[in-house]
Design a protein around this nucleic acid. Structure first.
Length: 259
DNA sequence: ATGGCCGGCGCAGCCGGA
């Protein structure tokens, strides 16, 4: 089965592109971020017409995550545990029962954290601490777990065309990269990096001809539990989608797991 | 050498993104 993550940067502006991609790629589960829509405004009918079940966790204008799946999930939970006062819609998790196996997949939109020196960067670190706590709990289940999303973290210099240009940016700070490293220390496997040493970008800014110059970064990640990683058959990044009409600035990242 | 955009909201231009 194919599990994908994609920051679509606005579902209303991206619906045609999303439908085209779903029809061609046919992922079993697609984790979306930045739907920028309330639940009631999400164009679910067009997606359901392609045979997908739709679960959203939206908010007005900003953020928002969704899970699209061919099989309906057995359970869904919204919001990252650990702060009931957090109003930002950045986390949705589903559970699927596949024969004897339990598969958990979360769609994650980790805070950007810019600009440094404001409350936004501590919010990012606090959110990451909650994610680490949640991942620690989930890994105790020893089930197939995929934490998929826009992490807004450039893990290593290899993951940027021009790492120096990101030195003062929240995406490339030692503190947040350290937490990403700790997530991997828990046993989570970075699907893309575990299968290639090549520079593989998932985001290119709309500005300054970044796509044409391949001036990209790798910030969209699939983190797999050891049990899920054992079933990993292939990993891909649908970079061609960045060249379509009216693209998102992010592209889909996918992992294929053995059934 | 530098800078170049886009979506949402809502109907002008600002906010947020990365």
């Amino acid at each position: 089965m194919i599990i994908a993550t994609w920051n679509i940067n606005g579902i209303k502006a991206r619906l045609d592109v999303l439908l085209s991609w779903l029809e061609g790629r046919k992922p079993d589960i697609a984790c979306l971020q930045e739907i920028k829509s309330q639940d009631e405004g999400f164009p679910r009918a067009a997606i359901e017409a392609l045979g997908y079940h739709v679960e959203t966790h939206g908010q007005k204008g900003f953020n928002g995550v969704a899970l699209l799946s061919k099989m309906p999930p057995a359970e869904v939970s919204r919001g990252l545990p650990g702060d009931d006062g957090d109003e930002q819609a950045r986390f949705i998790e589903g559970v699927w029962k596949i024969g004897p196996r339990v598969l958990r997949v979360a769609s994650i939109y980790l805070p950007n954290g810019n600009p440094l020196g404001t409350e936004k960067f501590p919010y990012k670190l606090g959110w990451m601490a909650r994610l680490e706590a949640h991942a620690t709990r989930r890994l105790r289940d020893e089930c197939d777990l995929v934490l998929a999303g826009d992490y807004n973290i450039i893990p290593e210099p290899l993951d940027a065309k021009s790492p120096a240009a990101w030195a003062g940016d929240a995406l490339f700070q030692p503190e947040s990269r350290q937490v990403y490293r700790r997530l991997k220390g828990l046993g989570l496997v970075d699907a893309v990096r575990s299968t290639t040493d090549d520079q593989t970008f998932t985001f290119w800014d709309y500005q300054a001809g970044a796509w044409q110059k391949n001036n990209g970064i790798r910030i969209d990640h699939l983190l797999l539990s050891p049990e899920a990683a054992e079933r990993m058959m292939s990993v891909g990044v649908d970079q061609h989608v960045r060249g379509w009409e009216k693209p998102s600035d992010h592209v889909p990242v996918l992992v294929e797991l053995a059934n």
